[in-house]
Design a protein around this nucleic acid. Structure first.
Lengths: 151, 151
DNA sequence: CCCCTTCTGACTAAAAAGGTCAGGAAAGTC
DNA sequence: GACTTTCCTGACCTTTTTAGTCAGAAGGGG
């Protein structure tokens, strides 16, 4: 139930790309802007490229840019590209698990958990993230003081 | 963003305890009922005991039982006991992370993610889980066919 | 042709995941 | 008091994941 450094880095780099209006951005600039180890970042960017989220060109004047408009790429897209499916249980998707005995309804709980994760991650685009103008339901979640309390 | 086998096992064992109306339940019975490796389960039960969720007695007629009524223990309690804090990013709680540059609003996103996780996990009690009578908002989440679609 | 930058695979160290094994310690029974 | 039962605990183990680093190949630009 935790977010890996890789996923965090990936989203931050993608946000930086979303904000770069023109031309390819060098890996080094992304690494500096977000304070990410360069060599690790390049591996992440490669994964994003393979997932079709990012494009790249080599050589002088080379760099990375988003393959699609920033408002059509969600945080979920980026996280899935580097971490795989969201909210798997024991490495299987919750809809494919069969629970027995008194745990039968646990499946519905995990499904609800995933649905609520998706409700945030699939509705925040990179454009939203950069502008800070998050979808209203997400904004509301983050506005509650209770959401900021540790536990 | 995944649920470990340990957490899954812990919740299932706790559900089984919640359903056992009377007397201590032996580890072996729990293991059989939920098809969990016995020795691994005992370690998990020990963690639940240390967290004050479960109690135990040794010897003949010994076993495990819930330390509190089943409707006052949530799935979140059990998951936290074995997995630690929910929705940490890079091993830190989201409210303590400072993002720079174009990723500034990422913090709000992770906060919203955690809030939505809590919205499910902290509101489903072991009693709810066993009866199958989940809180209405959770039920609604799980009812949507979209929530069952892989992605 | 040379420099720049991405691309790729190999490698590594440390931690986590998912267990197993062996024995000790309390509680109950004969 | 011996014996059985069951929990309790630490040590150990294998595999996978995490979070990187290193070295070099390959493609673009001037």
């Amino acid at each position: 139930m935790r977010v890996s450094a890789k996923a965090d880095y990936a989203v931050r780099a993608a946000a930086e790309l979303a904000a770069a209006s023109e031309g390819p951005v060098k890996g080094e600039r992304l690494a500096e802007a977000q304070d990410i180890p360069l060599q690790f970042l390049e591996h992440i960017l490669l994964e994003l490229k393979h997932a079709g989220i990012v494009r790249a060109r080599r050589g002088a004047k080379g760099g990375y840019w988003l393959a699609r408009p920033a408002d059509s790429i969600t945080v979920a897209d980026v996280v899935r590209a580097v971490e795989g499916p969201i909210a798997h249980v024991q490495s299987s998707p919750p809809e494919s698990i069969e629970y027995r005995g008194n745990a039968e309804h646990l499946q519905e709980v995990w499904i609800a958990v995933r649905a609520n994760l998706r409700a945030v991650l699939e509705h925040v685009s990179l454009a939203d993230l950069v502008s800070g103008d998050l979808p209203a339901p997400v904004e509301e979640l983050a506005a509650s003081p209770d959401a900021w309390a540790p536990r």
